[in-house]
Simulated scan of single mutants.
Amino acid sequence: MLENFIYISDMIGVIACAISGVLVATRLRMDPFGITVLAGVTGIGGGTLRDMMMGATPVFWIVDNTYIYVIITTAIISVYWLHRIHRFPAYLLPLLDAFGLAIFTIIGAQKALMLGFSGPVAIVMGCITGVVGGMIRDILSGQIPFVLQKEIYATASILGAALYVICNYFGFGQIVAMVIAMAGTLSLRVSAIYWHLSLPVFSDDREA
Rank of each mutant, 00 (worst) to 15 (best):
M1E: 10
M1F: 11
L2S: 13
F5T: 05
Y7G: 03
Y7D: 08
I8S: 12
D10T: 12
D10Q: 12
M11R: 14
V14Q: 06
V14N: 10
A18I: 11
A18P: 07
A18C: 08
S20Y: 07
G21V: 07
V22T: 09
L23M: 08
L23Q: 03
L23P: 03
A25V: 10
T26G: 02
M30L: 15
P32M: 10
F33E: 01
V37R: 09
V37E: 12
L38D: 08
A39Q: 07
G40A: 14
G43Y: 09
I44Y: 14
G47L: 05
R50F: 13
M54P: 11
T57H: 13
P58N: 08
V59Y: 08
F60M: 14
I62E: 12
V63R: 15
I71W: 06
I76M: 14
I77T: 11
V79M: 14
V79Y: 07
Y80T: 09
L82E: 14
H83D: 15
H83E: 14
R84M: 11
H86R: 14
R87N: 12
F88S: 15
P89I: 12
P89T: 12
A90T: 11
Y91D: 08
L93S: 05
A98P: 06
F99Q: 01
F99A: 10
T105G: 02
I106N: 05
I107T: 13
G108Y: 08
A109D: 04
A109P: 07
A112C: 04
G119S: 13
P120Q: 13
P120G: 11
P120N: 10
V121E: 08
A122Q: 10
I123L: 09
V124N: 02
V124W: 12
V124F: 13
M125D: 05
I128E: 08
T129K: 01
V131E: 01
G133Y: 04
G134F: 01
G134V: 01
G134C: 02
I136K: 07
I136H: 04
I136G: 03
G142V: 07
V147G: 00
Q149A: 02
Q149K: 05
Q149T: 12
Q149V: 04
K150C: 01
K150S: 07
E151K: 00
E151W: 00
E151G: 00
I152A: 00
I152K: 00
Y153C: 00
A154E: 00
A156V: 02
L159M: 06
A161L: 04
A162K: 01
V165S: 03
C167I: 06
N168D: 03
Y169K: 03
Y169E: 02
F170V: 06
F172W: 06
F172E: 02
G173D: 04
I175M: 08
I175F: 03
V179M: 05
A183L: 11
L188S: 01
L188I: 08
V190I: 13
V190H: 05
I193P: 05
L197Q: 05
L197T: 04
P200D: 11
A208I: 15
A208S: 06
